[in-house]
Structure formats: C-alpha cells, structure tokens
Nucleic acid binder design. Sequence first.
DNA 1: GATAGTAACTATGATAATCATAGTGACAAG
DNA 2: CTTGTCACTATGATTATCATAGTTACTATC
Lengths: 163, 163
Amino acid sequence: MPKRADLSDTFCPVGRSAELLGDRAVLLILRDLFFGRRRFEAIAANTGLGPQLVSARLKLLEKEGVVERHAYQAKPLRHEYRLTDKGKDLFDVLYAMRGWAERWAYRDGETGGGPAMRYLHRACGTDVGTATICPGCGALLGYGDLKGEPSPALKAEQAARAG
Amino acid sequence: MPKRADLSDTFCPVGRSAELLGDRAVLLILRDLFFGRRRFEAIAANTGLGPQLVSARLKLLEKEGVVERHAYQAKPLRHEYRLTDKGKDLFDVLYAMRGWAERWAYRDGETGGGPAMRYLHRACGTDVGTATICPGCGALLGYGDLKGEPSPALKAEQAARAG
DNA sequence: GATAGTAACTATGATAATCATAGTGACAAG
DNA sequence: CTTGTCACTATGATTATCATAGTTACTATC
C-alpha cells in the first residue's frame, strides 16, 4: 500500500473508528485480547499473523490508548498486553461483528447446528444467541456480563493453531 | 500487501467478519451507503477513495451479498448500489463504531460540545446519544428507527468533499 | 558447562495492494 | 460539435504484508 489517506481528523465518527478498526490484524488482535490471550506469542500463533505485524499493531494500539503493556516477570523481562477501558469499550463492536457473522456468514450445517461461539449471560445463565439484550432477563449485555464458549469445531481449530 | 491470509473458513465469527470489515475502504463505503449515498461518484467523492478502489470494493460487497447493483436509468446505462438485508444488518457494527468514536476519539471541544453525529429515535423523538436502547422510551434501536443528523462541522466537511 | 528451549521481538527480500493521475465509452445539452 | 456527466478502466510509483530467519536474554536439561 501507499501512504494511506489519514482519517484521524475527519469529523465523521465512523471514519475515525475505521482508521483503527479498518484493519484485519487489529481486529484479530483485539479479538484475542478480549478472549484473554495477552502474550505476544499466543496472539501471533492464534491469529496466524507474523511477529512483525503483531508487533507493529500492538504498538499502534498502545499509542491509541487501547492496550497497555504490562511486565509480568522481571528476570528475563517479559511483557503482556491488556485492554484499557477505552479498549474494553470496543466490545460492542466486536460483539456486533460476531452477531452478524453468526447470522449470515456460515453455510447451513457448517457449525453443526448451533452458533460457532455461544454466549451465556453470567447473571441468569441464559444463552443470549446474538442479542444485545438478554432474552431471559432483559438486561443490557456488555463485556463482563457474558461468558463465551467456543463450539467444538472452533475449539479444535484454536488447539490446532496453538500446537 | 502480499496475498493476505484467508479467514473465510475460520470457525471464528469475528474472523469471518474481519475478512470483510477489516478494511478501511469497505467500512467507509458502507458508511456512505447507510447514509443514503448510492452513486459511484458520490461515494468516491465523499470517501476520498480512488475510483479503482471503490470499484473493487463494490464488486466485493456485491459478491458477498451485502450490496446489490441496481440500474436507475437505461439511456446511458447507469447503476447505483443498495444494501441488501444482509448489508442492512451490518448497521449494528457501524453504529457501535460510531458510539465508540463519539465517546473516545475526539479531543475536548473539538465537535463544539455535542456529538459529531446526532441520532434521534424516530418513534419518540429522543436524542439517543450513543445508546442501543432508547433512553426515552426503552425501545431497542436498529437501522430505520434512527434519524441521523450530522453536526455543523461534519456537514461542512461533507459539503467541501462533494464540491 | 555446553546444548536446547522459551518469549518477545527485529531484519530481510519478494509480492501485491493502494494511491494519484489520466483516459475511455456512452450519451445529453448547449 | 464541443463540453459535460457518470461509471468506470489503465498505468506506474510507492509501501504494507508475508514468510522465513536471526537476535537477545535468560532458564532448564544433559
């Protein structure tokens, strides 16, 4: 790519988000962070992205205040990456993307019947499907309210990438 | 870029969405389509993307079943692009992106006080802010329920690009 | 105490996507 | 019959991405 046009000073809010989120690598890294993968190598392995790209994007996300680098051991200095509040607030975007894909992006029977990823409302145990409001108790759903459970097929895929 | 890794057969729903949505041009074009811009030239002018990119992405979106090409005149054959149901269902994603940006992506006072883009609930007239449930009447908000109104600054920017 | 990991990166070169700019085809209007 | 509009396609320079290999700083094993 050439020097891509800069959208960081548009007044359009979607344009501003697109500057950061309109990038496959950023989206995949955020997904992994929301999933609890905080280590560089774990993210690189699961996303399938090269270390150079992961490095560049984590630096960008850090600069944007979406993730924080955190040392988790000192002897050989090692860092992990954590979502900030600004980062956690991106959950709605990723959750909407997941909902759309569950509804439209799978051929019949491909997942073996259910969704590729099931979400349960922690408070009441209801399977929320792709809803943003719990069908069981009516509560508005956000990051932390939900417990994700990958389908067997997805779990197998992740295990294969980690090995 | 090299031949980018293919995510269309991951079982991860975010990965599948990212295959399409992890692209600045796609996001900007979708934004314009949701905004009612259906003509090639209007989209190219407003997004600032070159005609080649717009052409390529519209073809991709059509292939994915997100937009439909529709002839609006026959003499000189002219087409416009419309969102399909699958495309309209992406509203939640774009709306979540907009909400995040309104909350985090503007420096103080940059928009002149309010949000860069105001959304009113058609049914009750309430300004919904960045909520997904109407603060006035409690209804769940989707595409078609909302009326967007760009701020003066955003309106001026769009007019400048169209000129 | 030399070899083999482990984790988090950086370096290198080939490939391909993006941008800017210009051009095309079909018609309408002046 | 020249100019204008709309929806594109063509071309060449630039640069991001991928694949692969290498680096640094330790720890654990033989």
